[in-house]
Amino acid sequence: MSKVKVAFTLNDQEISLLVQPGERLLDTIRDRLNLTGTKEGCGVGECGACTVMLDGQAVNSCLVLTAQVDGREVRTVEGLGGEEEVDKLQQAFIDHQAVQCGFCTPGMLMSARALLNDTSSPTREDIKTALDGNLCRCTGYKQIVEAVEAAAEAEGAD
């Protein structure tokens, strides 16, 4: 057995674990840490349902080895907003009917959150580029774009 010791920050909490060398971050999050908000849709980095933030950037957690995130910061959908509250982006998704089946939603939110943390007033093209790795089969994307625009505006107003 050659398990790897990893310590990282997950949703502002320090985590220390022993993992398999080939273990995917997605499996660590879902199976070991029981945070099932992050979804698996394809396993090959094409659908974006497993998107999390790694050091502030959107990444496909199905393509990241957990062993590689030692010392780094990971945020999942459960780490958005506070205990009771939802953040402005989540609220905008609710308000703009940007959610249908909801399976792509956590990944969409993480990609959008990464964008909004970097860019306070993104253009529509910026938003589309930030979300170009998140497939959605229900919404046709329009209400999602509108939600991200609204969230950017709401956060800019703060």
């Binding site: 980095g45 950037q57 959107a58 990444v59 393509l63 990241v64 930030a130 170009d132 790795g133």
Partner: peptide, 8 residues
């Protein structure tokens, strides 16, 4: 690829 791919 896509944004998450280009990030990694």
């Amino acid at each position: 690829g896509s944004t998450p791919i280009r990030n990694r």
